[in-house]
Design a protein around this nucleic acid. Sequence first.
DNA 1: ATTGAAAGTGTGTAAATACACATCTATCCT
DNA 2: AGGATAGATGTGTATTTACACACTTTCAAT
Lengths: 141, 141
Amino acid sequence: MSEESRQCHCLALRRGSRHVTRLYDAHLAPLGLSISQYSLLSIINRRPGIRMAELGEIMVMERTTLLRALKPLLTAGWIESTRAKGEQAHTYRLTDEGRRVRDSAVPLWKAAQETLERSFEPERAVDLRREALALTKVDFG
Amino acid sequence: MSEESRQCHCLALRRGSRHVTRLYDAHLAPLGLSISQYSLLSIINRRPGIRMAELGEIMVMERTTLLRALKPLLTAGWIESTRAKGEQAHTYRLTDEGRRVRDSAVPLWKAAQETLERSFEPERAVDLRREALALTKVDFG
DNA sequence: ATTGAAAGTGTGTAAATACACATCTATCCT
DNA sequence: AGGATAGATGTGTATTTACACACTTTCAAT
């Protein structure tokens, strides 16, 4: 690897991100869920009535990306969107079925999380998560 | 955000990864390069004659993903692939033009890298990179 | 020589991602 | 009321990513 690429913060994060995504996706695969979908269900579960713009900020995802990521969840009947009279923004919440799916996915998520912590050391994992989250909050201008 | 999603190592890494990807992509955009492509050019530059399998390991990328990621670089004439008689694997190297493109991209990459370090604190950035790289080396089984 | 395993390459399909552009909706100002 | 504006949604297009599957090539063993 070149000096630059070896030192590239971005490449390091992307590699790490791909690596752990594979781990979590593999654990969630039996339910036909990706970690991306699991994250969406979890966030919406915690904040029923959330708007897309907020979801986008939390996920650090483009609005349009989100729009298409939510579509299969809507189609599957796991989430529903409503818009109150006089409101512009749609709001999203889990359906009963969506809650069931998410609940059944939690143990699989937990297994992935524990595998990561066991393999990497719990403290390092927590530190890495904290720093990655902090980085997300940084405004590059 | 739900307790789970707030604590999810994977989501944190993915968010961080998306956030910094935007930063680097924005800096490289004037050259029509993505950080992914820049990384590929840099790695191939450093290790001329590299095989796809090795590239995949370094990038933590699926072979088929890599195959399609390399295609535009081949089309653009920035890299070339050859296969020696009696060898199964193609090997990749930069063309002169590819080297030129990469060289001209280095300052843009550096600007992104420096912006990140300035915004996040150089030490934290380096630590985060080191931990993300270490994580990549972990075998989850 | 044949075949069979291992290594490598390529394609179909689909999801995740984002930018540019267009459209729709609510509200505010006059 | 009518138009301007800001906020929100949706579409076209393209890249990135990966899984499943199929094909090809090399080489070793019989």
